[in-house]
Design a protein around this nucleic acid. Sequence first.
RNA 1: GCCCCCGUAGUGCAGCGGCCUAGCACGCUGGCCUUUCACGCCGGUAGCACGGGUUCGAAUCCCGUCGGGGGUACCA
Length: 443
Amino acid sequence: MVRVRYAGAPSGDLHLGNIRTALFNWMFARHEGGTFIWRVEDTDPERAKQELIDRAAETMRWVGIDWDEGPFRQSERGDYYASIVSRLLEDGWLYRCYCTRDEIKARGVSSGYDRFCRTRTDQPDAPFALRFKAPDRDVVVHDRLAGEVRTPASEVQDFVAVRSDGSVVFALANTADDIAMEITHVLRGADILNAATSNVLLFEALGAAPPEFVHVPLILGPDRSRLGARHGAVGTLAYRDGGYLPEALTNYLSLLGWAPGTGEEIMSLERRVELFSLDGLQTSNAVFDIKKLEWMNEEYIKTLPVDELRDRIVALDPSIPRDVLQQALDMELLQTRIKTLAEVRDAMRYLYERPPASEVAEEARATLSMLASKLETSDWSVEAIRDAVQSTVEELGLHRRRGPKPIFVAIAGSEKALPLYESIYIIGRDEALARLRAAMSVA
RNA sequence: GCCCCCGUAGUGCAGCGGCCUAGCACGCUGGCCUUUCACGCCGGUAGCACGGGUUCGAAUCCCGUCGGGGGUACCA
């Protein structure tokens, strides 16, 4: 029975890397019919805030991840850790260390610990941490992706397991919880591959078999450093606010470090669960490419039912008039023209708000003028409007393609806009005439 | 510095010793379609990091170099 967890510090908004890790765990659990557990590593009191957890939960729900157990908070599991610590103490795995980092450095130790306190017999009246008595041999971590990762004996450290304030350190809480929760597979970022050595030592000391480790490669920014704040929008919710569909975002994220092996790229959550396998996991880091995400979002938008699309646009931006939006959507003006939901507003704004009149070329006046007079008496249908525009262009001997440009400018405020006939139809006869006249009078 | 991981076009993937004149997708780009902009369709672009082996044969296996990333905390 597969039991996996997403364990992270609630550092506010879960960033893309966190979500991808959660996603991999979740997809794996769902594929295997296993259990997905959410654990919050908030031993640091600064991080033990309910609002942070709420926000993390909001993020998880938005992307479609649900959890079978949890969220378990490490900040509430102190008693359990204390029992683990006393066990370790009884079995002789821990020893008191009174050294401060400065003292260690003063001894000429640049990194790691020289085991100074390991053999000391006195017990000074000073604060102490508890260090783990690491064995004097190579330690091997069996990782699904990296293989047998061997840490040479000289690099194996007597790491601090309990801080001088009595709180337990990440490796300890992490391992203790994985044992208690009977975790079978640990999928996490490769940034803590090295830390797995401490985990393995602790599993052994506690007489538990280590889970299968799967350290997934990291997501990098365009500059190839680990994706982080310096790369701009990295919080997952920022993508919701930016008009990305969660299914597109998670689809894209899933492909960063994993491939189904079928060549498929656009896959629903269900399909991804169906295809997910540890075998498809990648061993090298992946660069986050916003362009491909945009493309994928576009693809998802294109296949969304109109009503669904409308609801999502309104949910994101309630200020957009629903009736106008509905018309634009029904006339298929928007769906193939936006990469994100957030673009809708600017794309269709001129349909319900008169754009500032911009200057039109002198020669264009005749065009606008003739069209205006045709529109005054024309039937009010897209077909009739098309006839009016086309006949104007023909009668004035204008270029078939370039001829209507001034009309776009007059109506939409730009040469690039949604389809003209429908736009004119939607804004209505009075408004259309007013805009044409306004454009003529600017010059 | 030391330790660990990784290395196929700009990016993400496929390739698992001969089927590779290295495939797909994004990007970029030419064209068609078209009332603008898009969509769609057709085409182009660019790569096995380098050097040694092993082998009849290597993108695929081995070694080295170089390059990238991560770690080196009483952070996770």
